[in-house]
Design a protein around this nucleic acid. Sequence first.
DNA 1: ATAAATTTGGAATGAATTTTCCGAATTGGA
DNA 2: TCCAATTCGGAAAATTCATTCCAAATTTAT
Lengths: 283, 283
Amino acid sequence: MTQNLDAISPDIPSDYESLKARISTLSESMPKRLLQCARYALANPDRIALGTTAEIASAAGVQPSTLVRFAQTLGFDGFSQMQQIFQGQLVGRSSEYTERLTKIRESGTNTPGSILGNFVERSKQSLDDLLRQVDTVALERTIEALSAAENIHLLGLRRAYPVVSYLHYTLGKMGVRTNLLEYTGGILEERVQFINENDALFVATFSPYSPEVVEFASKAFGRGVAVVSLTDSVLSPIARVSSTVLEVNEAEHGAFRSLSTTMCLATSIAVAVGDARKWTSLS
Amino acid sequence: MTQNLDAISPDIPSDYESLKARISTLSESMPKRLLQCARYALANPDRIALGTTAEIASAAGVQPSTLVRFAQTLGFDGFSQMQQIFQGQLVGRSSEYTERLTKIRESGTNTPGSILGNFVERSKQSLDDLLRQVDTVALERTIEALSAAENIHLLGLRRAYPVVSYLHYTLGKMGVRTNLLEYTGGILEERVQFINENDALFVATFSPYSPEVVEFASKAFGRGVAVVSLTDSVLSPIARVSSTVLEVNEAEHGAFRSLSTTMCLATSIAVAVGDARKWTSLS
DNA sequence: ATAAATTTGGAATGAATTTTCCGAATTGGA
DNA sequence: TCCAATTCGGAAAATTCATTCCAAATTTAT
């Protein structure tokens, strides 16, 4: 029902920008209290997004019912509908993303083009999230540890293997030699002894976490090796056996995740380590 | 009243970081459903911040009551109290984001954060370019060729190796077996004979193009094998010996390129091929 | 294998929130 | 100043929501 009304109704702002524009134009002919709402809304969009009518109304110096009328004046059914726009803005899902995504979804998900479109949009969002959520301190400590290490050992299986093999290649090209630990049968654990205390171990692992990787890291960590890990959640078992943890939330489509964001971070790490090594080797 | 309880209660996480830490430690001894909540919460903090118990619960695959219990397990009175932490994170983040970005841009290019920021931006641009410039016809023909192939052979060296090893893994997980051609000395060319005419060869190669890869593809192509290639320019030598060519312009920073966009495309290809194979095997 | 303890699902409850409604107040026009 | 129209405040109603509770199911310990 609401759906139909939405469709019929000539114009409900669908993103924050157009909502702002509408408020701005309509406010010229608004009575006192509604204008008060308008001012408050534009000045405190976060509060509108998260508060209840009672809270917001009292903060804005109006009645809850006035807030509802304000929303209705703008074309919404009620306050709640308007609030969603403010929430969308807060999350940063600038409506372009979600809009394009739903458009993609509507056009059937089975053509190669639509699958690609889906991944592209999600990856872009994922990249935004990366920059927002990245623990700068952990990142810097990771670079330090890798730069200071005598030898860098790389470990990652399954989906994480492309990540470490890429690091192996890229760091190598920058003159940083690394030891890529390949998994050839059950002999992985034996190699822990070849990692010494001045080395660093870079581990990548994603859900479902390979037990042998965690086990390996755990042993190395126990021996005092600097373990820097790249994983998808703080719940990852690797977190408990790492000196620093970097977290990446990768875009997914159904059950399948890309490596797009992870690769972006990995490349950055490689370049940063390469830079750092260059500086120290020059001095 | 609540205030007093808060004060008495030994430990209620007061910010997102400590909440994450607490979830992380407590999750070790959590029963199944609560762990499910933990995972979902850490993976979708925005939804926790904005949604209602009913919405979140259904998205996480649990009951609303479980969500409340989850919050109580962490020390909160109930869900609402926990939600405030997530909301706080949301607000802080969005206000810091732009600030952070400009800070990253202004600071020299040598801090890990600025390098990452740089790559994130370029990768997003690169993804946009991908969607805009992708040859839909070539993409569809690529999927068709890979779906129709009896066996799929994958080849890529150096920077392209992570791409094909990822495809190997992902396609494998979708039930599509592939043959990853590893480069172990000079014997690569001999293997051309094991590729037959009903097979497809997927080749990834980027500048500077490995002669042995091009040579290999050329021989396979000459034998009538469907060669689908992923490269960085239509001028790539691989283009002349391929049935279809996909082009990717990857983000770069100085001399170093990410694999972000390439991985996005690769994932899409894998999912599309997996889909296509499923349909045909069902019919 | 059995009992005890824990965990879970789902309905029921009670609180909170949004929305409606209507009389009162204010505004604008004659 | 008086009337009509609009706007407003506040209480009441309706809806939605978080939370509690308990029986069923599962797990753990004996």
